[in-house]
Simulated scan of single mutants.
Amino acid sequence: MPDTSPAPARPSATVILIRDTNDGIETLLLRRNSKLAFHGGAWVFPGGRIDPEDYPESQPPDDYAAACRAAVRESYEEAGLAIQTSDLVYLSHWTTPIVQPKRFSTWFFIAAAGREAVQVDGSEIHAHRWMRPHDALEAQRAGEIELPPPTFVTLLKLKAYATAGAALDAIAALEPEVFQPQHFKVPGGACTVYRGDASFDHDDIERPGPRHRLYMIKSGWRYENTL
């Protein structure tokens, strides 16, 4: 019989780099090579898999410390921006739904960007843009750019902050949010349901109760959070 068990989720790390402008905060988005199997052509934050070298020599292995090192390394490898692990604020953790053939278990950090010019590698990453969260979401809504669900939800959260300092201070005071999406097919597209939603761990997408979900449908994506 064929193996129907879900693909293992590979440990990875992402860093959301933000900076202040006269028009509000901007965040760095990178366009992935369209030939890549995972989110090829999408606009994402810098990030990638945690390598064995990212683990400190201490025992037992420290996954969080390795994620911090990977975030710093990926910021430099993909964008040419040098940050320190002490700059990182832990924002959230995302695990790819089990329906996906390629899955990741990803720590999301946020940090203030330095003053260096962005330099993409031209291989895995083909372009970059500094964008206000609102502008990136509007571009996605207009079909100009593609955003993966974690990037979309994160940009929605960043819209609430007027400055990079305010964002970092507020996020540092919050408990990091854990997203383990459950995937549902709905008319016009799909819906991912997150912990706290009445339908989480249930088969009924219409189950009454609180909502914490993302509708990804042709008429437009819609995030609901009544928690």
Rank of each mutant, 00 (worst) to 15 (best):
D63A: 12
V15C: 01
L227R: 11
K35G: 13
K157Y: 13
I50P: 00
K185N: 15
V99P: 00
R32A: 11
K159H: 11
S123R: 13
P149L: 05
A117I: 11
A79S: 15
P133M: 02
M216I: 11
M1N: 07
S105E: 07
L156P: 00
V44T: 14
S199C: 05
N22T: 13
A142Y: 05
E124N: 09
P2S: 13
R49I: 10
S75C: 12
A66N: 05
F184L: 14
I25F: 05
P60L: 13
F38Y: 15
A66C: 08
F179L: 15
L36C: 09
A82G: 04
E26V: 08
L168E: 02
D87H: 01
A79Q: 05
T154S: 13
L137G: 09
P52T: 07
P101T: 14
I110K: 00
H128G: 03
P210R: 12
P150C: 12
P149E: 04
P149K: 07
R19N: 06
F108D: 00
T85G: 03
P208A: 10
T4M: 14
F109A: 01
Q180P: 00
I145R: 10
Y215L: 15
D63C: 02
P97R: 05
E175H: 08
T95R: 14
G220H: 03
P52V: 05
G114K: 01
W107N: 08
P61K: 10
G41D: 11
P2Y: 11
Y76G: 02
L155F: 05
H202A: 13
R49K: 12
R115S: 15
S86T: 14
K157G: 15
S12L: 02
Q140W: 11
S219K: 15
C191G: 02
A198T: 10
I98C: 09
Q182K: 13
G209K: 08
L88K: 02
G114E: 01
A113S: 15
R31H: 09
L174H: 13
R115G: 08
A65Q: 12
K185A: 15
E53W: 03
C191P: 06
R129C: 06
Q180D: 12
L28D: 03
E74C: 08
T95N: 05
A111S: 09
R132A: 14
P181K: 07
A71D: 00
D3S: 09
V120R: 03
A13Y: 00
C68G: 00
A139G: 03
T106D: 01
A79F: 06
K218F: 11
P176N: 04
R49G: 08
T4Q: 12
A82Y: 09
P148G: 09
R211A: 09
E53R: 07
R195D: 14
V153D: 02
